[in-house]
Design a protein around this nucleic acid. Sequence first.
DNA 1: AAAATTTATATCGCGAGCGATATAAATTCT
DNA 2: AGAATTTATATCGCTCGCGATATAAATTTT
Lengths: 149, 149
Amino acid sequence: MEPTLKLADQICFPLYAASRLITRKYTPYLDQLGLSYPQYLVMLVLWETDQVPVSFIVQQLLLNTNTVTPLLQRLEAMGMLTRKKSREDERKVIVSLTAKGRKLKEQAATIPSEMAACLLSKDITAADLGALVQTLNQLIATLNEEEAG
Amino acid sequence: MEPTLKLADQICFPLYAASRLITRKYTPYLDQLGLSYPQYLVMLVLWETDQVPVSFIVQQLLLNTNTVTPLLQRLEAMGMLTRKKSREDERKVIVSLTAKGRKLKEQAATIPSEMAACLLSKDITAADLGALVQTLNQLIATLNEEEAG
DNA sequence: AAAATTTATATCGCGAGCGATATAAATTCT
DNA sequence: AGAATTTATATCGCTCGCGATATAAATTTT
C-alpha cells in the first residue's frame, strides 16, 4: 500500500488520537487523586523505584528535562515528593517520595483494572491489546534508538 | 495477566510515548513546510476536503473547539487558509484553503513515504504497522463512542 | 411572537511538551 | 593545576490540549 496524504492512512494520526482519548478516559480517575496524567506517570515511576535522579525519570518516561523539571516542581509543591542535591555528585537532584506520596499508591491501586475494563469491547480483546503493546514497544525502541544514535 | 501499577504494564504509556516520539520524528520534515504537527493534521483534512466548517475539523481530528480555533487562527495568520461566516447559518465558520495552502500539498507529498521508511525496522514490518493501525482505530471507535454516549 | 433551549464557535487560564539557551558541577585534556 | 569539555539540571518562550465559561445565531417551546 502506497502511503498517501490521507489522514486515515497515516500511522501517526491513530496514535496521536488514541493517546489523547485514553488520557481523557483517565482524567476522572486521576482527578480523585488530584493528579494530572503526566504527574501520574511520574508517580508510577517513583512507586516502582524511589530516590532516583531526575535523569532516571527522564529516561523512563522518554521526556526531556525541561518537561520533567517543572512537573517535579509542581509535585513537590503538592507535597508528593522532595528534590535534594546528591551528596556524591552535586549536579544530580535526587527525587524522593514523601509519606503522602507513598500513601497515594494505595488509592491508585484500583486504576489499572478499571482502565483495562474501559478499553475492552466487542471489537477488542485482551489479546489484541497485548499485541498492540508489543508492537508499540518495538516502535518505541526503534524511534528511541535512532534518536540516541 | 492482572493489571498492576507498573509503567510497562499500562497500555496508556506505550501509546503516549510512541505518539510523542513519532511527532518528534516528523518535526524536521514539517519544519521545511513551516508547520507544527497539529497544523499539519489540519492541512491534511483540508487537502482532502476544502471549505468545511470548524466542526468538521473538530470531528476529524477528535479535538475540541478550544484547541482547533487557535490552530486555525495561526494558520490564517500564516496565510494558509481563510475563515468566513457561512451564509446559510451565521453560527458556522467556513474554513477554506488559500492558493498558498493548496500549493503546500505538493511540498508535503513526499512526507508519508519518508516517514513510513523511518518506522520500519528489523523488528517491525509493514504488516505489523497495518495491524497496529487497525487495533488503534477500533480503540478510538470504542473510546469515542463512550464519550458521545 | 416572545421566551427558553440548543448549536457553533470563541475566549480564558493552566499544565504539558519541547527547542534553544543558561548555569553549575564534574571530568578530561594539556 | 588550569583550561576546555562534558554532564545534569533549570529557565525561557512558544504552541498545544482541555475544562470552564462566554457569545451569538438558530431552533424549539409555550
